[in-house]
Design a protein around this nucleic acid. Structure first.
Lengths: 146, 146
DNA sequence: TTTGGAATGCGAATCAATTGCATGTGCACA
DNA sequence: TGTGCACATGCAATTGATTCGCATTCCAAA
């Protein structure tokens, strides 16, 4: 019987690029987009290609190893390792800071939808924009001379 | 005193293109993306340009005349007239049907966030994906021969 | 009616993401 | 411990959505 290391369990074949990409995503902790993942991976393997990054992001998504998200108005998607606990994000319009949160209200909402609309929810895309603790206290000065 | 018609209240200058675009959006009822808006507007004014569509979508957004949304995994945004009642969307992964819904739970959630995270929410991006009433009952046959 | 500033149309540019194709490589089986 | 081959990769070109530059046109205030 063959024992797979956790790290490569679902990646067949486990190419060096895949292992590299996964470890960059894992180490990032935060949320990176494809370009940033490419930049960081390139530092360790200069020849890796952006297409490989995109292809593997799709592959990891299919394997349910990572989650893909849309933050605010940005055009590109962000990625992070899948976690057992569901969580969602607050994005500050000023400093861009991303805060994670969770709330039982979301489960409630999904249950309500299932019941009222007879709709099977498989994915919740939820992102709140606004001003974080630090940015909101600036009382938005009318004209900010830089 | 000049009385502005509702239709052109916030659009200075009220060019023919702007009036056309707004009326197409208003008549669409549903949700259209820039390309579709362009297609429909072109039928009434063949010379309108796609750049004008995008420029005015941005303008209408700034004037808070329309709302911009992201549905599911589609790459482009959808637009609809701003309404007084907040509402959100369910998108069926199968047939693409968009169902609107509202729930007091969302207000609750925003209030909770404000309190717990000291975060001023200015925008809620919420979209649920899944299978609608009609599509979910198909019990997903294992292999569908077309 | 004139006129200045803003809006438009067009095509080119940009940005994110995908694809085609020739080459390279992990790994199942011998 | 090879060896074949399906699949992964790198590269460059492509697509699709959106934006930009610039010359021209048009609105609206005087």
């Amino acid at each position: 019987m063959r024992i797979n290391c956790m790290c490569t369990a679902n990646i067949q074949p486990a190419t060096s690029q895949r292992k590299l990409l996964l470890s960059v995503i894992r180490e990032a902790k935060g949320h990176l987009d494809a370009k940033e993942l490419y930049r960081r991976a390139s530092k360790r393997n200069a020849s890796i290609s952006l297409a490989t990054v995109y292809r593997n992001l799709r592959f990891f998504k299919e394997q349910a190893l990572i989650d893909e998200r849309h933050f605010g108005h940005t055009r590109s998607c962000c990625y992070e390792m899948k976690r057992s606990e569901e969580h969602y994000h607050l994005v500050c319009r000023d400093c861009g800071h991303v805060i994670e949160f969770e709330s039982p209200l979301i489960h409630k909402l999904v249950a309500e939808i299932r019941r009222k609309n007879n709709f099977d929810v498989t994915r919740v895309e939820l992102c709140l924009e606004g001003y974080c603790h630090d940015c909101k206290k600036e009382e938005k000065p009318l004209s900010k001379v830089t």
